[in-house]
Design a protein around this nucleic acid. Sequence first.
DNA 1: CGTAATTTTGATTGTAGTCAATCCCCGTGG
DNA 2: CCACGGGGATTGACTACAATCAAAATTACG
Lengths: 247, 247
Amino acid sequence: MQQVASPAFKSCSDCPIRHRAVCAKCDSDELELLEDIKYYRSFSAGQTVMWAGDHMDFVASVVSGVATLTQTMEDGRTQMVGLLLPSDFVGRPGRGEAAYTVTATSDLVMCCFRRKPFEQMIGTTPHIAHRLLEMTLDELDAAREWMLVLGRKTAREKIASLLSIIARRDALLGLAPPGKELQFELPLTREAMADYLGLTLETVSRQMSALKRDGVIILAGKRVVTVPDMDRLMTEAGDDSDGGYLV
Amino acid sequence: MQQVASPAFKSCSDCPIRHRAVCAKCDSDELELLEDIKYYRSFSAGQTVMWAGDHMDFVASVVSGVATLTQTMEDGRTQMVGLLLPSDFVGRPGRGEAAYTVTATSDLVMCCFRRKPFEQMIGTTPHIAHRLLEMTLDELDAAREWMLVLGRKTAREKIASLLSIIARRDALLGLAPPGKELQFELPLTREAMADYLGLTLETVSRQMSALKRDGVIILAGKRVVTVPDMDRLMTEAGDDSDGGYLV
DNA sequence: CGTAATTTTGATTGTAGTCAATCCCCGTGG
DNA sequence: CCACGGGGATTGACTACAATCAAAATTACG
């Protein structure tokens, strides 16, 4: 299944998520303690990292790639409840069971910390505890934003919302070219988009086609999206273009 | 508007939310420090505690009563994103602006902490920081559970889910009589239920009637609900009755 | 190139939304 | 004491949006 992997960098100080992850505030002494309890694991696109209910003896940071958290009902209905990007944190200190199924949607590298020693470090290392609180509060804000999308937006607005979230994030990370025109790659299949938005994949496909027909987006292949006018997309999402005190 | 109120108890040690709120883990020295930065405020049912975007110079615990967190789009569509019960925490350390509108749905008493000194205490008092992290993680779990409800459940399942959440909570707090039969009072109007569940109030009303007609619930007046068979209600909610590792 | 997986498009159905009327419970005032 | 009024809740008729069922088309891949 998964492999224990050596990533392309040597130590925490070279880590690409060094200043965004749960370890962001740690000094070099603290990083050394973390080095002792950490190991890397890699997953290829499509692999399940863990199933809801599995025993879990680690928590982890996403180093590279994209993963999803999903919840599934007995009859198969599935809802994505989290989208994990590089630097995001997986797992809950104090809980030995996975609450959600975690799936790699692209090739994925995770930096795993053995759970027990990590929990102890939370008690002894305020830098970690504080950063974890900050990240959890951000997650909670994102979940609440998402609740508005799920509960009150139309299918078209839902798609536009998802696209604008991804577009903004990529722009923020400097992954997008400059200029007014934004371009990015969707890290999700149509089905994953449907699970994110509480729609069927047919509806996702129809609304993507409609947004394309109306010139809100331009598609190159299935996955590469160009947004000629970001304000237009935000309007389609039902967000005021000036909103977004939180990026 | 709101009044500075004296609650029915004298000090933190007599406080009804003493062992569940953000101060749950504090020792008496720490409580004394909190006493210095806290004050009580009361609101009557229906009052708005604060509007999204308002300046906020405090964070708070709900002492008694029920409040809601809501998000509203420009055209008026409203989604509840949090239901605040006694011991729940309001506000985000480090943020001076309210992200959501807070409304009292019953008479409400809040224990407010001046924001700046409270933020400093988070840094110096691990008992508070740790409890706040724990509570935030619980909130995040609740939000994710809720996302499944919003995204994937039918109107009938949504209503049954909400009722079972309230029923379980009341049973847990010992508010309900013993026996197999559960009875509780809805702390929400039909409109608030609709905002919680991403429905219209007409649909809420119809599904309440349907559940009553089918014998899943018994209504005494509009607000008092009796559940003759909790497992039946859970099944209607689409949850397996054995689920719920987290109450 | 051929097969499977993913996506798009089409036709039809069904659930919840909308618009509208009525009801019910209370409190108020004539 | 009863009429009145208002907010909340229920019920009804109709509509619309997204789901479902089904087929075709495009892409990825061995």
